[in-house]
Nucleic acid binder design. Structure first.
Lengths: 207, 207
DNA sequence: CGTTGACTTGACTGATTAGTCAACTACGGC
DNA sequence: GCCGTAGTTGACTAATCAGTCAAGTCAACG
């Protein structure tokens, strides 16, 4: 047995993948357990409910893979508008990666789950919303920084970030709906128009 | 008894509302029946499965309320950019109306259901996708018309329509996630930027 | 060696799931 | 008045659902 049981971690990963591929409501506890190779009793040893596991799974994904990639996207020494360009680049790569790994474009897990569970599973919806807000906040700070450097003209960074985020998430969801990652790549000129600048095109298919 | 049984219609409406409020997977056949005031046997007299009812429900909504409102938005004699402005106006009103009628902003039913069921319920996803494509097509034709009139400069109406649609649906979903219709209203300047024009602000709260 | 406590196991509950079915009702055409 | 049929009814299945639990394993520690 490993130093710390891996059942908990396997459950987190199985739950995240399952509700990313399908949806929160469409996944049963039995299905998660089978996917994770863990018995039901162990499930309820680690988590009080299916909802609690889902919350923990979102948080876990955010605190590992997502937040490191966020730092990579936002935290580099590049000028703000180039960092923004890398964000779109990264989203495109994510869409393509999910297509390769899962057979279809899956879109943004936080956004789909927030949409599905809004008003129905308050705790889960709140966690997803918190993550999305954190991302939008990063966008806003990057836009404000670009404005302060004189890279673009902007009278309301918060409103612009909200619209930019809607555009990104909307396109990402369209990519899922149409199983077509190009929906994200073709976003660049629209972002340029939205910000009133020339936005560099996203590099095509770097497979 | 009415001339034609109203059970079928009640099922269509109950299904639509239920999966709009919650999600497709979260709704049981029993719950739909109870909501519609119809017994299970009648359900399976009219529809072969839960999925078939969902498909019929989406189509029914689209062919009644949605397509008439589409004609109202797109079909009037107004110049194209003003019609576009009315579309955003209308979406804002819809967000507010769902908040009043259902207690929360529900967003776009076609978009959420297309997202949830993509790759999982092929027939239902295809119907939702078809409806969304129809809407995007209307956007594209309106943009092309505006360009032909010289109202705006545009080299790819299809790509611009896709981005505009992503922006609209993204904002509508954000409105659902945050239970805040203003997310749709604050879209106008972003659309203006995206199209390279001055876009009229959406009229605030005409309650 | 014995105890403790984290973790695992598999059987169990009662509710709920999608879908079936034979019997029933009531209306329109003949 | 009688018959076909569209629609209705409620009881029924077999599977699956979320969640429980008592009994077990095992490593660490005294």
């Amino acid at each position: 047995m490993p130093p710390v049981s891996q059942a908990r971690m396997k459950l987190l990963e199985a739950m995240l993948e399952a509700m990313w591929e399908r949806s929160y409501a469409a996944i049963s506890v039995d299905a998660i357990c089978e996917r994770a190779g863990v018995r039901k009793g162990s499930f309820y040893h680690f988590f009080p409910s299916k909802c609690a596991l889902a919350v923990a799974a979102l948080e876990h994904k955010w605190q590992t893979e997502a937040s490191t990639c966020l730092d990579e996207m936002f935290g580099s020494g590049l000028p703000p508008l180039e960092r923004l360009s890398r964000v779109v680049d990264h989203w495109y790569e994510k869409a393509r990666a999910s297509q390769l790994e899962h057979g279809r474009v899956l879109g943004c897990p936080y956004f789909s789950i927030a949409c599905e569970t809004a008003g129905v599973e308050p705790e889960l919806a709140a966690m997803a919303r918190k993550i999305l807000d954190g991302f939008q906040d990063r966008l806003e700070r990057t836009l404000a920084e670009a404005r302060d450097r004189g890279d673009l003209v902007l009278d309301d960074p918060a409103a612009t970030a909200a619209c930019l985020f809607s555009l990104l998430e909307g396109a990402s969801t369209q990519a899922r709906i149409h199983d077509d990652p190009e929906r994200v790549r073709h976003l660049a000129p629209a972002i340029g128009g939205l910000l009133g600048i020339d936005f560099p095109p996203v590099t095509p298919a770097t497979a």
